[in-house]
Design a binder for these strands. Structure first.
Lengths: 199, 199, 199, 199
DNA sequence: TATGAATGAGCCTTCATTCAT
DNA sequence: CATGAATGAAGGCTCATTCAT
């Protein structure tokens, strides 16, 4: 007796992986567009061309989705970052390091609103898989720098965190004020005087 | 039409100032205890021994209250900080500066969960009254340091922000790991090699 | 220990009647200005230069105040209306009647928003004191009209209500459209053909 | 974060149309029973056997629902009214007109409390779709009456409004007093002497 | 008599999550 | 696998009324 009319959507049957990617990318877009505070499950499924319930077939909760987004973004970023970071001499290390900083700024700019959502929101507690954490990456760079004589011998673990916070702040402020050169100059001055080997 | 029976609570009639303080202090406690994400208006009024509606006599919204809490905390902190920061020689400046850093760490520790609520939540957008902003305070210190020859000549505005981010990160991590000495050592090394005058 | 500061208002001690009048007039103004749906007790007391609690010394509830406002307005209006309605011949009656209609329109215009508040709001149920009801007044006019031969013999009670509804509608629509002449013409045509004596 | 346990209600999944009807009918009943001033969203959903949130799937606000109810009722009523209003001679016109008046009275009686809710409440401002407005319907009747010589030539637009107000008042008072015959007699007398052609 | 701080029931609305189809 | 209708807990805010002073 009761009929459920098909309201027009075509039921798209996809492989789980494909569907998950679609949702993930819709999430990226939505979080970035309307902001994490206003994004709703339904915004994402609509963008992905899926039904609300489908969301829960792929993520057990909103927060889990945020984690997945973070993982997705970070792993892309880190892979590329590592590939680019090649150097043999101290001069090359510094060039690569500064290049990496610039890449981070761009990465940060591309993230936009997303940044807040996945690094400072409800998810902030849940630890990032260690290999993807910025501290690990920076630590890896520093170790290399120390090894090839580009940097002096610092407490790598601690230094990594401080380096990251400086880069992060630089990124935030460039985004905010647009004064790219000014921030870069001061930050690099900091890095060189702190980490550089005084010959 | 609407009746309002007195259901047992004793009405405590206070001066507006007294009530406001009570609510503010209850807010501090609640935000710190159950965390900003879970705190509700009613938690605060219950803690303050007031009725829900009373909250809205003193704050027009939840966010306005957060702002009031921030103002309250910052102005106390900044006042004290400024009073302690006295110095005439470079050596005194560095002692005062390191002292101020330590004071910040303690401040940060005392804030606990509150930190998140009032500096990174919904309120983050609303600008802090400039005199109370950390950047302003640090800028003030740096200018003094440059003037009396304790620091070299840096872009004060930018440097303040970077200094703050380093202190902030140091604070976060000390809170997280407990490894006070280690962070302090590396951070101070950073400050001295970056800002110190190489004579 | 606890002091209640005087917050600036001067405690004006008035005779009860004076205070009541002030409140009543403030109510008139407020209801008319911001509309019955948005008017609050406090708007009235503020306008009257009194404290919120004072309201309840003079009216036991919001609705009672509405009733008082209605009584106040009607009794003024009706008194004047009756005084003006003097006539001896049929021609005079019709002139007086039309004059009364026009007076009603003006009255209605002056009421503005108030009209809704006191004649169609929460108060609508509570009966107006019979002497003040429009039906009574119109009935009184009709009886006079019949007596002096200006009107034919109708069921006065029923006719009064119909007459009032026509006048009322005429008033509403003149207020709405501004087309005074048009409405008056048709309505008077109605009255004359219906009530007039066909000689 | 938020859990949503099923606490016992059986989920009745209906088509949107069916659910909307159920809610609309529940609204009719509730508004009529407990009165528009006391009716709450939850009363309606309870009556409809639905959850509170379901209401907002079908109406974006309380007022929108009132509008929907009004539309629903009016369109039923008007359709039937128009179908019944057939006439060729003046005598037939008067019969049909009086019949329509009686139908309106019955309609009005059936509405009960609803009348207030949908024609004089918060919704009063929002214009009724013109084809459904009583003035339009009555105007349509009058034009017909004039055309076939049942009525004399009046300002149709204005006359419609006055006719409606008379019918309306008659309805109100019959409802109030029960004196059907008395009101009908006087009102029809009015209509005939005013609108009828004096041959 | 006057004040205005305090009360708390009440209601709308949102939206993550569930589940019948 | 997919859908989208259904759920209901939760919470911010209002404001008539009360009452300590």
């Amino acid at each position: 007796m009761k009929k459920n009319k098909n309201t027009g959507r075509i039921r798209r049957r996809l492989t789980p992986e494909a569907r998950r990617i679609e949702l993930l990318e819709a999430a990226l877009q939505v979080l970035n567009t309307i902001g994490p505070a206003n994004a709703r499950v339904e915004d994402i499924t609509k963008t992905a061309g899926a039904a609300k319930g489908t969301f829960y077939l792929y993520f057990s909760s909103w927060e889990e989705m945020l984690e997945a987004v973070r993982e997705h973004i970070l792993s892309n970023y880190v892979t590329e970052m590592k590939n680019r970071f090649v150097c043999r001499t101290p001069a090359e290390w510094w060039a690569a390091f500064e290049d990496a900083c610039m890449a981070f700024i761009r990465f940060r700019e591309d993230l936009g609103e997303l940044h807040e959502a996945i690094f400072h929101g409800a998810i902030a507690e849940r630890p990032v898989h260690s290999e993807l954490s910025p501290d690990t990456i920076i630590g890896w760079m520093l170790k290399k720098g120390i090894k090839i004589g580009a940097c002096r011998n610092v407490d790598v673990e601690v230094a990594s965190e401080l380096v990251f916070s400086v880069i992060h702040t630089m990124g935030d402020n460039i985004l905010l004020t647009g004064e790219r050169e000014r921030y870069i100059q001061t930050a690099f001055e900091l890095f060189r005087s702190w980490l550089g080997r005084t010959v």
